[in-house]
C-alpha cells in the first residue's frame, strides 16, 4: 500500500550506488522482496517506472525475486517453509518463533553501462 515511498527509497539507493560505481545508465535492478514484506510487485514496478523518469534509472527493468518465508524448527533441527503464515512445523507440529527469511526488502544488484 506504500509502494510509492518504497520506490522512492529504492531509487535513491540505486542512484547512489550507480554514482559510486560510475554507471552512466542503469538497465536493470534486482530486488528481493520477502513474502512477509507485504509489498505488491506490480505496484512497486509501476511506482518505480514513474519515479525513475528523468534519471539514469529511467526505463530500467525491475527484476523482483520473491523470498519465501522460512522458519526454523528447534525440535526437528530443520528449516521449513511457512505456508499461509502458519509457523507450525509440518513434521512435528511445534510452533516456531524463529523466522529465517521472508522479511527482506533488498536491492541486490544493478546492471548497466559504465560511463567514460
Amino acid at each position: 500500500m506504500h509502494e510509492t515511498s518504497i520506490a522512492q527509497m529504492l531509487s535513491e539507493i540505486a542512484l547512489e550506488e550507480a554514482k559510486k560505481h560510475s554507471l552512466s545508465r542503469v538497465s536493470s535492478l534486482t530486488v528481493q522482496i520477502g513474502e512477509m514484506a507485504a509489498v505488491v510487485p506490480e505496484a512497486l514496478t509501476f511506482a518505480f517506472s514513474i519515479i525513475s523518469k528523468g534519471t539514469i534509472l529511467e526505463g530500467a527493468r525491475l527484476n523482483i525475486e520473491i523470498v519465501p518465508i522460512v522458519a526454523w524448527c528447534s525440535q526437528c533441527n530443520e528449516p521449513f517453509e511457512v505456508e499461509n503464515f502458519s509457523f507450525k512445523c509440518p513434521e512435528c507440529g511445534r510452533i516456531s518463533d524463529n523466522c529465517l527469511s521472508g522479511q527482506e526488502l533488498l536491492l541486490v544488484s544493478l546492471e548497466g553501462e559504465k560511463g567514460d
Binding site: 540505486a14 560505481h21 533488498l106 544493478l110
Partner: peptide
C-alpha cells in the same frame, strides 16, 4: 555493460 552487487536494505 557491468553488473554491480549492492545488497542494501531499501
Amino acid at each position: 555493460d557491468v553488473s554491480v552487487t549492492v545488497v542494501r536494505n531499501i
